[in-house]
Design a protein around this nucleic acid. Structure first.
Lengths: 113, 113
DNA sequence: TAAGTTACCCACCAAAAGGTTAGAATAAGC
DNA sequence: GCTTATTCTAACCTTTTGGTGGGTAACTTA
């Protein structure tokens, strides 16, 4: 077993800043749910609302905007009426998925406390 | 390249709950810093304060308490005066370290946006 | 006897995050 | 011409999170 050196982790100040930024991607109250909904298909705004009913409209819009800004998801607007807008994960966004899987297994060991 | 199945991720409702709980471990404003300080040695309360000077006393105490409650760190109180208290990562707590390392590499790809 | 040391607690305050409600634009369908 | 559908925006409020400044216990050292 080759554990990653912990010295590497602690080494530089910037590590912690990078990590904080990275965590921002996932740490909003609704971010995980949004990302999960988009794992295997694009999704319209209204569809997302229906699938995550507890989130308020405002916050959903706001979170989508920020995720777009972060480069995690992308937005396609079709000029139709009523309007149609689709959100999907970017390639970069897909890269967080395997890590979430691992985080989950770690999380499970904590639930047994 | 063997990408982990994304179906596995999305599968059950509980996955998202477990993940949310897991993220709680790391998502406080100061949690990362605390965890990093404890990666390779135990640390007294006052020492932590000095190493993370921006955090307020109250919040540090509070975060330490919660991390203890989550099973990420443990607290040893020595009956001396002035009091001496040491915090250290639990075995479980150590398990998050390698994932942080990976998270960091993913985060780096997002910084280039 | 007074001052210092350490790890806290408490009452209050400020800022950030999230929620509610109303409304606006636009064309289609009745 | 009134309603419906969709994706938002804006004003306002509540809750959560984090911060400040003071105080305390208990023994040591000056």
């Amino acid at each position: 077993m080759n554990e990653p050196s912990q010295r590497t982790l602690k080494s530089d100040e910037t590590t912690q800043l990078v990590l904080k930024k990275t965590l921002d991607i996932v740490c909003g109250k609704w971010r995980l749910y949004i990302i999960f909904q988009l794992t295997d298909q694009a999704c319209r705004y209204g569809e997302l609302r229906r699938r995550i009913p507890q989130v308020s409209e405002k916050v959903l819009v706001q979170e989508l905007k920020e995720l777009v800004g972060l480069g995690v998801i992308e937005k396609t607007t079709y000029n139709e009426t009523p309007p149609r807008v689709e959100y999907r994960l970017t390639e970069r966004g897909r890269k967080v998925l395997p890590i979430l899987l691992q985080l989950k297994t770690v999380g499970e060991t904590f639930l047994e406390v």
